[in-house]
Amino acid sequence: MTIATRYAEFAAREARGVSPLYERLSSAVSGDDTLLALLGTLPPAKRQPNLLFGVVRLLGGPVDEPDAFHDFTIGNWPAIEAEIRDRATQTNEAGRCAVLLPVLAALPQPLALLEVGASAGLCLYPDRYAYRYGDHLVGSGEPVLECALTGVAPPSGPPEVVWRAGLDLNPLDVTDPADVGWLDALIWPEHTHRRARLRAAAAVAAAEPPLLVRGDLVDDLPALAARAPAGATLVVFHTSVLYQVPEPRRNAFVELVRDLPGHWIANEDPAVLRYDGLPEPPGSALYNVLALDGGPLAWTRGHGQAMAWFG
């Protein structure tokens, strides 16, 4: 896939109907030969729209008008390039807990949660948030995570979590304003509700910080998993992470995680983690597939805003 096609597809499949500003901006970049040439100097994993747009926002650049974005990016490319090479998209969207909850609540309790690609660990607190599935409210507290759920009944309550840990190449600290600032820059410009959600979820995590370990998803996962307490169901999970992992390493991770005790929950793009016999997705937007122990269960939207169960 060319860089131009990547940006055009982001506009059409991810941003359309979700962020008009990013739809327009990504479409403009797909036809901007100067910006495409600059992006072509980066490693393939560093060319993604979310990373470019997040870095420009972090540096105070405009994303609401393509011409102004073009001028800022060209004029500040050395600083932008340095940030892009140093950073990764670590979108820590607590809303994704809403699509994990039906599976987590159905597993043998209590749970020991281990998130791969944990960022700042905000998805390690599914028991501390509240959820609204249509008219059905689950749990209490803030933030309240809303999800359009079809095909399965909402869970009756949140799970019981007795241990939570995360593994990440560059874990972020919710008590560090600079790290929270990067998470904020990754939120799409119109999404004020997600900014409020980030602040509320960060407050939950900061009150009882999770165990976050800097490490590799293959080399360092077994040792961290071994630290889970006896008597709890180990659940290794990840969401929108494996697209950043080269395929051979991704395959090694899948082989490893299948053999760990407990359960494995994946929530990934079906082009990244493939399954046979999937039903058609609910629409033309980009959907992840939620799976338990390698068996696909549901289509989910990237920020946890919708879930269509088919398992």
Rank of each mutant, 00 (worst) to 15 (best):
Y287P: 11
T2F: 15
S27M: 10
E268K: 01
R87S: 08
W309E: 03
P158Y: 05
L297R: 13
L224W: 01
P108L: 07
L104N: 09
S30T: 11
N92Y: 00
H303R: 13
P78M: 05
V213I: 09
Y7I: 15
R16D: 06
L111D: 04
T5A: 15
A4V: 13
L183Y: 02
G283Y: 02
A118R: 04
L297P: 07
L35D: 05
A68Q: 10
V174S: 00
L107A: 05
A105M: 03
A298C: 11
Q90T: 12
L256I: 04
V236H: 02
V236G: 01
T300H: 14
R249I: 02
L101M: 10
W309T: 08
G311T: 04
F253P: 00
G215N: 01
L25P: 06
D220H: 02
D220R: 06
G95M: 10
F237I: 05
V103P: 01
R199F: 03
A232P: 06
A230R: 10
E255H: 11
E160F: 11
A252Y: 06
V174N: 00
D220C: 01
S240L: 12
V218N: 02
R47D: 04
L52Q: 02
D64S: 15
R195T: 13
N76I: 01
P108G: 12
Y129P: 15
V241T: 06
G215H: 03
R249F: 05
H303V: 14
L242Y: 08
Y133G: 15
L122I: 03
P210C: 08
L21T: 06
L290K: 09
H70T: 03
P159C: 14
T239M: 13
Y275D: 05
T2I: 11
P222K: 09
F69V: 08
L35Y: 09
P110F: 01
R85A: 04
T239G: 01
T41C: 02
M307K: 10
G215Q: 08
A4H: 15
A105H: 00
W309Q: 00
L290T: 05
L137V: 14
R96P: 15
